[in-house]
């Protein structure tokens, strides 16, 4: 039981009258790769963004190693949402990789990776740069440290973004459709890096449309639709033998219905 790293319990999110997330609950075990799949608008990205409170939930709780994310106890025993300032230390324990990378274009690759370590005062500048180089090595881009992001391909930019998240020494990393904005021929290099992280035992939640990747690399899969979890379980089981009709229909649409998967003998 104590290998549970993250608990999401009763998570709700509404924009005005529109309920985007309706009572989402799941656990992430330490070292696990959990994939969130589902059609556009199913709430999976919103769900992911609630974990580090970039999106403020309307209800429910996020607990990382016993610590409530984004909530602080007030004097009268109740709780309130933290400010962005109060959230900073908690967010630094959670890496995030965005669909559109969001590297900072005015900083070199090295500075992109080292900025947080320097500014949060975790280490000296020299140590931060040393760590940055090591993390760039992990994504095989150490030789690009002095370049500016705009000089890199999309795949390389996303790998730098992964290095930036790794430099936080995070307890888990959230991936928000990390390959959706990439040219098809660049998807592989990014997935390759994510696969290496999975093999090293990094805890990750991955919102993705790469169903085959979710199946092959992910430990578990959650299929979401309409703001609820429709089905969850071991990755291969959910994707190869979905129990629910909605899961089957979705997988069929994206070309992964069990019947369409042809395996070489």
């Amino acid at each position: 039981m104590n290998d549970i790293l993250l608990t999401v319990k009763g998570l709700k999110k509404s924009y005005g009258a529109v309920e985007v997330l309706k009572d989402i609950s799941f656990d992430l075990r330490r070292g696990e790769t959990l994939s969130l799949i589902g059609p556009s608008g199913s709430g999976k990205s919103t769900c992911l963004r609630c974990v580090n409170y970039l999106e403020k939930p309307s209800g429910g709780e996020i607990v990382l190693e016993g610590e409530h994310i984004g909530r602080v106890r007030t004097g009268d025993g109740r709780t309130r949402t933290m400010t962005d300032r109060e959230l900073a230390p908690q967010r630094s324990e959670i890496g995030m990789v965005f669909q559109l990378f969001y590297l900072w274009p005015h900083l070199t690759v090295r500075d992109n990776v080292a900025l947080a370590s320097i500014k949060t005062g975790r280490m000296s500048k020299a140590e931060a740069y040393e760590l940055a180089e090591a993390m760039l090595e992990k994504v095989h881009l150490r030789h690009k440290a002095d370049e500016y992001p705009e000089r890199l391909s999309g795949g390389q930019q996303q790998r730098v973004a992964i290095a930036r998240a790794l430099a936080q020494r995070p307890k888990l990393i959230l991936f928000d459709e990390p390959t959706s904005a990439l040219d098809p021929e660049l998807v592989g290099e990014v997935l390759g890096v994510i696969r290496e992280l999975a093999e090293e035992g990094m805890s990750m939640i991955l919102v993705t449309h790469e169903i085959r990747f979710a199946r092959d690399v992910g430990d578990r899969v959650i299929f979401m639709d309409g703001g609820v979890i429709v089905e969850e379980g071991p990755a291969a089981e959910v994707i190869d033998h979905p129990r629910k009709d909605r899961t089957r229909a979705f997988l069929g649409q994206v070309g992964h219905a069990a019947s369409t998967i042809v395996r070489a003998a």
């Binding site: 970039l54 930036r164 936080q168």
Partner: peptide, 8 residues
């Protein structure tokens, strides 16, 4: 958002 996400 990316800046907030890394803990700034």
């Amino acid at each position: 958002e990316a800046a907030l996400a890394v803990g700034l």
